[in-house]
Design a protein around this nucleic acid. Structure first.
Lengths: 217, 217, 217, 217
DNA sequence: GATGAATGAGTCTTCATTCAT
DNA sequence: AATGAATGAAGACTCATTCAT
């Protein structure tokens, strides 16, 4: 028997072929635009300019194709590989909360600006499938939480943070950030936005909101 | 003239029949759970215990059925009809920002606690179809913004608000609120949540974040 | 038990009620326009301005409704009840073939002019269901053929008819007549037609074509 | 570019595949027998022994499938491609009206004898959709009328034709011919028919009916 | 006598997926 | 490695018909 072409087998992280890249790009756009269920494999094939069968030859099933798009997208958003990403941001010796928030938001904004479809895709997936959220929350806990925790501890020690449950604190920061990104890139992408001013405002509000109140010196 | 049963015609707000209520309830649950595209009319019919045709006899098409669920859901969320709703909250002579935020969040939390499916539905719809968001943003602007504006003006006059663009301010408050609701009722509905503590934290952060900073007295 | 309303029972030829007339008229138009299979009972009900159920209350089934339209239409075309109809035409002591053909064609033309939908309906029915044609051919044979036969015999005796098989002769006359009516009222109803000239031409051709040829005096 | 199988695109007259031929044959039979609306794509698929989807993969929609059957059928009837077809008949230097009519009728009779379903299909289509008739009348006018015209002119010059409007003349000849074919192959296909005798009779009647009458020598 | 509301079986069409090449 | 052609199951939606009123 000839060696079967075994998709998704072999080297688990072989770089995608050109065909695969075209399919992944087409699928990302369509999934993000219409949602998973409303996107037909025929539409993906047509946009990628390949035969429908080629999709299945390379990704086995529509669902696996989706996973192979979603997973990297989430990792990119949480654990970017590029220099200056979140881990690098977290690793730097931040001297102040506003500096840290600014670096974090700016960095993630750049990513989303270049990949709005990924944000849209993740937002949909997470709302429809909370178990996906759980999976990626676990990644966050394992990979990022310790660093975040030590950073917060240091900031707290410096008197820049009030005593707030960590989970609530992080959720609030995330909400404000994600809220802006969604409005900016998904809900009203056509409007005019002054990113710098908005960032400054958000950082200002968060820094003031999170610092110890005047009464508890 | 024949008195055909004329779905969606006639009196535009005739109270729904029992059959219609069953269909609407089934469809809301399924649309929220699986998304519009992944929900078949057959599944709705089966859950509502009616014939599939009955759905079309009453709502003309799947899309119109969806609209007849989404529209009231959004209105309920934005402009609740029940006493103590947003408009009443806005109308009261609030003496302080924390009191106002607390009333607002608590009121909307109760609504979402009773109708998590509506939140889930709206979140999906708004991400997939920004034009829907635009439609409802318009409702907000027309119905609520003036009251919010005057309220904020008053709070500002009392020294409880920093000079922040209104849109940014409202987006931040909304982000924090919606972020909590999504986490609480959509992403991790099974976890234990201490609503009172979370509310207190959010209000605290927002109030401090929004009040004039110590340096600008 | 109460007396059931027994549609199509009771007096077999009770005059139709107003409701029934409306339904029959609507159904005739739609059947003629779109064909039997493409006409829904819903469309008939809507055009007749009655509830769909009323159709079934009065005519039992779509098929019976169709029959109750087709049957009279055929009888009207073959055996008109009005004065001056085919039987009267046949009964008169015709002195010549052209006079007879002229009277016949003119009379049937008037009928079709007033009832083009009936011709269209019959044409469709007869092509799709030859057994219907057979049924009505039988009516013709029983009711009309004897008279036609004696008329033809007389014309033959007078030297106006060649010796041609009766069936062929009648088919040719019918073909020419029906061909004109179809073109005139079904295929190109919008065009301008000079009925008198066309009739004259057809009669002329038929009379010459059917009379004994010069060589056989 | 992807090489999608592009139904009805690409080379517009690519020879049909075997699958397509089976579908076309099945559809022709069923459409002719039951009419377009009463023929389900499921029935066609079952008779052609293919999956229903295969029909749509090859013909896009039921309506286009119908068109791809009707159009060639009409062209075959009007403009046969085979040798000895209408155009060849028209091209020959006919020495007499009876010879011409005989050749024409015989030729078209053979075609219909081999393809009665096509005649049935065309008859239905033309009655239900006069605009289809108009389309094909145009083809006739463009492709055949000039030749017919010159032929008739020549016959007229030879004294074989009376001065009759061309349109009426052609309609009468067509009516007689089509009338026979319908009776012969559609209405009473089971009966015994003596084609030669019938043809002779029709030609005789037409020739005598169309030649200058004795009185106008 | 007529209806409003409902239905199971069926409509055309599309789905994700597979086989032979 | 990619495809063209095919498919069974399912999609939204319509059909002729019936029940309770």
């Amino acid at each position: 028997m000839s060696a079967k072409s075994d998709p998704s087998g072999g080297a688990p992280d072989a770089p995608p072929t050109d065909t695969q890249r075209r399919i992944l790009a087409a699928a990302l756009d369509l999934f993000a635009d219409r949602g998973y269920a409303a996107t037909s494999t025929a539409a993906i094939a047509s946009r990628a300019a390949v035969a429908e069968k080629t999709i299945f030859a390379n990704f086995t099933s529509k669902e696996r194709l989706f996973d192979q798009i979603l997973q990297p997208a989430v990792l990119d958003l949480l654990l970017p590989r590029a220099l200056g990403g979140v881990r690098e941001t977290l690793a730097k010796p931040w001297t102040s909360l506003p500096a840290f928030l600014g670096a974090l938001m700016r960095n993630r904004m750049e990513f989303v600006r270049d990949n709005p479809a990924k944000l849209k895709l993740i937002a949909q997936a997470v709302i429809l499938h909370p178990e996906i959220f759980a999976r990626f929350a676990a990644i966050f806990r394992e990979q990022l939480e310790p660093r975040v925790e030590s950073l917060l501890a240091e900031l707290e020690a410096r008197g820049e943070l009030r005593a707030i449950p960590r989970a609530s604190l992080m959720r609030i920061v995330l909400s404000v950030t994600a809220g802006y990104m969604l409005a900016r890139f998904v809900l009203r992408p056509g409007s005019e936005w002054d990113d710098e001013a908005e960032l400054a405002t958000m950082i200002d509000v968060l820094v003031n909101g999170l610092k110890p109140s005047a009464r508890e010196p």
